[in-house]
């Protein structure tokens, strides 16, 4: 990011003073808003330590339940990620194939699964597949839906990655007498994969976010588990712990995802330092893909 320094002069002493005043005022405003929110929360009794203690009460089973839900969330994300990566790579090869009878159907598959909302895909797996004899439970439906959607997204990312490898590499390999498949497997793929690693981790964040859609099929990921706890305690204590439980589930998601995002950035920095991948252009996860739940349209490579 060199742009900011190009867009404006380095601020002089007067501008710096103005900025300092502005910053202070802004900070005061933000703090005041946070204070107001906390005050409202407090006057609604939401900040009472006893209410938050439930999150750490092993006798009530809350930490275990949330822990299990986190494991289940990670489990469905991991399974879908592995399956989507493998299938996505195959689809990417298919779409780059020289044969139209491979390329065209693969393209249709990729475009279809990217054009349908993930939630609909998951519901389809849950409700329709069993009628044709494929018995998938809540886990299966969620994992399959996530896989189908993410494999088509990853296929496009892989394709972009393979195409981003410097053309000279491909030409040199062909000149050495390698067959197309050899060029792909021995020359292009190893370089593309290094380049793709941070993007893959970033995609895992997207997938983890999307696993929260499990609530609709009754899979006990974090959010559904939090709701279940709310319902259980509601029955004895009213809404005493509702806010706390939802905040806990939301925070766990954010913390895990921020950690994963940081890992992606770290890997990205390491890869960029590596001279061996210098031959490839930078590939970023497009903004719409990061939104999860349904990226679409044409990815430009």
């Amino acid at each position: 990011m060199t742009t900011p320094t190009v867009l404006f002069d380095l601020p002089g002493p007067q501008a710096r003073r103005r900025q300092r005043i502005g910053t202070t005022l802004g900070l005061v405003l933000v703090l005041a808003l946070i204070g107001l929110a906390l005050w409202r929360l407090g006057s609604n009794g939401q900040l009472e330590p006893a209410r938050w203690a439930i999150l750490f009460d092993f006798r009530a089973g809350v930490p275990q339940a949330l822990g299990n839900a986190l494991v289940d969330t990670l489990k469905v994300a991991a399974v879908s990620m592995v399956a989507a990566t493998v299938l996505g790579a195959l689809l990417a090869f298919g779409r780059l194939s020289d044969h139209a009878w491979v390329r065209v159907p693969v393209t249709v598959v990729i475009e279809f699964f990217r054009a349908v909302p993930l939630l609909i895909l998951i519901l389809f797996c849950l409700l329709y597949l069993p009628t044709i004899g494929l018995r998938v439970g809540a886990f299966g439906a969620l994992a399959l839906g996530l896989t189908l959607y993410n494999m088509s997204v990853l296929a496009e990312i892989f394709r972009a990655g393979i195409l981003s490898v410097d053309r000279g590499q491909r030409e040199a390999a062909s000149a050495l007498g390698m067959r197309t498949s050899q060029v792909m497997l021995l020359v292009l793929l190893p370089q593309a994969v290094r380049r793709m690693l941070p993007v893959l981790i970033a995609q895992l964040v997207v997938l983890l976010k999307d696993s929260s859609l499990g609530f609709i099929v009754g899979y006990f990921e974090l959010l559904r588990q939090a709701r279940s706890l709310v319902e259980f305690f509601n029955f004895q204590f009213g809404d005493l712990y509702t806010f706390q439980l939802y905040v806990a589930a939301g925070l766990i998601y954010i913390i895990v995802n921020v950690l994963l995002s940081q890992l992606a950035k770290y890997v990205e920095r390491r890869t960029r330092r590596n001279a061996k991948v210098a031959a490839t252009a930078e590939v970023e996860l497009p903004a719409d893909v990061q939104m999860g739940g349904g990226a679409g349209g044409a990815v430009t490579a």
């Binding site: 009530a60 089973g61 809350v62 275990q64 339940a65 299990n68 588990q225 279940s228 509601n234 029955f235």
Partner: peptide, 15 residues
């Protein structure tokens, strides 16, 4: 149901 007190409510301890 997993959310209906008295009829079918999930117990977090036993799941």
């Amino acid at each position: 149901k997993f959310d209906q007190p008295g009829f079918g409510l999930l117990n977090p301890r036993t799941q």
